[in-house]
Design a protein around this nucleic acid. Structure first.
Lengths: 145, 145
DNA sequence: CATTTTAATGCAATTATGTTGCAAATATAA
DNA sequence: TTATATTTGCAACATAATTGCATTAAAATG
């Protein structure tokens, strides 16, 4: 299998972004997690490796290019996850469900779950859907029992 | 029909809140709009009639009592709308769809639209659903044509 | 490989947003 | 009318986000 860092480098180049340390580090961190990652967490993990401002700008650039997508949790905090392949700057295929665990507070991207069609009042034209479910994730509901 | 202000006063008393000017003003503003209202907008409209801190506290108290509910828009900004009758401090019946117009940026509560049942992976237990649709509202899609 | 060009970073300063403590003012109860 | 309990507004503080700009680093060029 191809080297992970190499893959990230290609991803950056493909999107016209320079291969820099903070950017690779963000991709590294995000790819190593099974749920969306909050900005404060990223900030903490990166520590003094990168300025807070740089992190803002990296995340913003990634989002614009469709490399990552942003989910807001119940508190309005930004969380980020690497997009699955379908995404690009033009089209964010982000129509999957996000699951917010009340217990461990992880945010899962349930890529497999499709949002059912929705009947809206006449005149309304739906472009995107953003569905956030809250409750207990598989891990946590296991532990409770 | 009963006087609107009287209704608001009763609503406050019923929830153990004192009848004060800022509280009535907030109810007045929210009730006069057909979509959820952002905190910054409220702040602007109330101007020097009420302190910023007071607005925070009024909104917080109202939310706790189930008089209004909060929706976060795509930017994470808090928006508020008066709850329909089903709500109380104990149970927020907020499982309806919010529609975020890309053009006029209004947030509509589509009370009539039910969120369809959702199939989640084994182990996940859904407690609440929060569905935000974006696109064009009836007004704006009219104007475009 | 040296040099030029372009983009990205880090720092400082600024602005925006949200919170807390407390004295003064106001609404309700007595 | 007075007493009690809330609520308000101010000031101070804390946190989060944004902007401008000089410096640094990456890629393009010859």
């Amino acid at each position: 299998m191809e080297n992970k860092t190499e893959r990230f480098e290609k991803l950056l180049v493909k999107n016209g972004l320079k291969r820099t340390a903070p950017r690779l580090q963000v991709l590294e961190i995000l790819s190593g997690r099974d749920s969306a990652t909050s900005q404060p967490y990223l900030e903490q993990v990166m520590g003094k490796d990168a300025d807070r401002v740089t992190l803002y700008r990296v995340l913003q650039a990634f989002e614009e290019k469709g490399i990552i997508h942003k989910v807001l949790d119940q508190q309005g905090t930004a969380n980020y996850a690497i997009c699955s392949d379908g995404c690009s700057a033009h089209e964010h295929h982000d129509e999957h469900v996000h699951f917010n665990c009340d217990n461990c507070h992880k945010i899962y991207c349930l890529d497999t779950v499709k949002i059912p069609a929705l009947k809206v009042p006449a005149g309304f034209k739906v472009e995107h859907l953003n569905l956030i479910a809250t409750g207990l994730c598989a891990n946590c509901s296991d532990k409770v029992n």
